[in-house]
Design a protein around this nucleic acid. Structure first.
Lengths: 333, 333
DNA sequence: ATTAGCACTTAGAAAAAAGAAGTGCTAAAA
DNA sequence: TTTTAGCACTTCTTTTTTCTAAGTGCTAAT
């Protein structure tokens, strides 16, 4: 129900507000249009009625509402290509063979927060299709051992364990032999239950002190599932945003970054790059989260950028799109 | 040259200021003394002349100068025992056998920042007296391998490597055999140079594609030295301090926390608990850093607490002292 | 050596005044 | 029917002014 010019007006307001963080008024806006400020005022009124704009108080300029941003992202934004400059910074990372995939991911997210001044997050966990390749037990001095678990995708976890005096070396090697025999090839997220339901019942037949050993390995193995590496870049970048000039607001948001359930709040299941504006992200009504899921041969996870609602949607979308594709390219062989 | 009462006055002012963060005036102070405010004014004037107190403006109350804090820490503070409450919270951690040493260290620092509301940091790196125990090479699918290095203290590092097509399995196992033979027992920080000067020259005789393999292992091994795990707790606790109510100050300090050379700025070489007030810490003139070095069988590092200059010296000193001793106790067997 | 008394200073809060940016509405022009 | 000029009216922001609380240093008396 809104005219072509009104769309242009909305687009201009959103873009102006993204740049300046200040409510946009009709006079100011009229510089960019060939119609008078009064006409624009009428359009703005219409756009407000449609729910795309709002005022902070009766005589203030307009700012985009969440609907307004959404409309902008869905229909108004022109999908530009990623800028040459941005591209350049990222390319060196993905073409650098010194860096392994994880390194490249983290580095590229660092760059994103650097150039955008938003906060970026990468979640990643060993993909479900990691299978256990080998369990290795290395005896150390005293009654210490270190248990190492390796998957066929090269993911390694280890755990140091102090055994009670009573455990003998032979029992340890028996256990590790048994584990290797029974667990090799098991998908890593099934290892836990297999340990509990298949191995625990029979291990007692072979090994005297199986309880301790069982617990030790259980711990080492459960590291895997627990490891949903969360990695932030530019966590404190909000300190630079005018909308977070009050220390309390900053505190509030940062405490959310650090909360326990951050993973579930950020995690994305769709492979597209998605935009969650204000109330439709789970983190905080005052921010926008743009995120996507990436998936490589041996790993999957989420890339996310968190910024104010007036974030530079075009740019961030492009950046994430690009990085995701580079990651998947690099991680596919 | 200052009288006994003047010492009492200084002590009272420091303690009051630590509590309230507000300049202390003579009237307010007179409640705690049996002399009149005029007399205290004279004492305060004398203390200011000695450099222990300062004013923010001509008619303000006094606040301690850095000298003042130093004098307080060195001579005025009464070395109380750690409070029962604080002790309790920490004890459970160190007596919990589920937690390994690293876990206990991090957890205890978390508790420190929780109860003090300051920021705490732990630096730790594998101690110099870790010796290489074993190098393990696990072939994965394709031409990937994962190289695992284990020390006699149970520290494990790993690195995934993509080999060029040309490398044969036999060469890989030869290399790993050679490395094990020549490196077992080598102190971990000498491994790098030994690789370069002793192994590199001869490995060519055994293995065709030694360059690639050499580089791969070099990388895996150099992880060790690079790993000076820095771990912050309560990084944003300064947001709660009245002296950092301006967003800019917060930004400034936090950016220092995140700077590259944070390690060198925090690292402590002395085993005592030391106090670095304002200008005599390398981090920032507006903070105090209290820190100490800990050293266990297989690890050494620094524990540090960063807070405003008016931090609760008695308490933090006690806490650090206690934690250090618990860590060293737990890490000695 | 200590204290009461007092004039004086300053930061900070509260109140008042001035200014800037914007709005909605009406009536005329296109 | 759409656009525009003109104007009265709001509200925020900034600046200025006023007031107050807390404190100081000094002098003279105890």
């Amino acid at each position: 129900m809104i005219s072509t010019r009104q769309k242009d007006v909305l687009k201009a307001i959103v873009e102006e507000y993204i740049k300046s963080a200040r409510p946009v008024g009709s006079k100011q806006l009229s510089k960019k249009f060939k119609v008078s400020s009064a006409t624009l005022r009428n359009d703005m009124m219409a756009l407000e009625e449609e729910g795309y704009l709002e005022k902070q108080h009766i005589s203030s300029g307009r700012i985009p509402s969440e609907e307004g941003y959404r409309y902008y992202v869905d229909s108004l934004m022109e999908p530009k290509k990623i800028s040459g400059e941005d591209m350049l910074k990222l390319q060196t990372i993905f073409s650098n063979n010194e860096l392994d995939l994880n390194g490249a991911i983290e580095k590229s997210l660092e760059i994103i927060s650097d150039i955008t001044n938003y906060t970026s997050v990468v979640l990643g966990r060993a993909s479900k299709d990691n299978n256990l390749e080998k369990v290795e037990v290395i005896p150390l001095s005293g009654n210490q051992i270190v248990a190492i678990v390796i998957t066929d995708k090269g993911h390694v976890e280890n755990k140091q364990i102090t055994l009670p005096e009573s455990v003998e070396a032979k029992e340890v090697s028996k256990t590790s032999e048994l584990l290797n025999r029974m667990l090799k090839g098991t998908p890593i997220d099934e290892v836990g239950s297999k340990l509990e339901f298949e191995i625990k019942p029979i291990i007692g037949n072979y090994v005297k002190n199986y309880e301790v050993l069982y617990n030790a390995f259980y711990e080492a193995l459960s590291n895997f599932t627990a490891d949903t590496g969360v990695h932030f870049s530019g966590k404190t970048n909000i300190l630079n945003m005018p909308e977070f000039s009050a220390v309390d607001d900053v505190k509030n948001i940062i405490s959310k970054f650090e909360s326990k359930d951050i993973v579930s709040k950020i995690e994305e299941t769709s492979g597209e790059v998605k935009v969650y504006i204000g109330s439709d992200n789970e983190l905080d009504d005052n921010v926008t989260v743009i995120k996507t899921k990436y998936k490589t041969k041996d790993k999957e996870g989420t890339l996310a950028v968190i910024g104010p609602k007036r974030m530079d949607y075009e740019r961030v979308l492009n950046l994430l799109e690009y990085i995701k594709s580079e990651i998947e390219k690099k991680g596919s062989n």
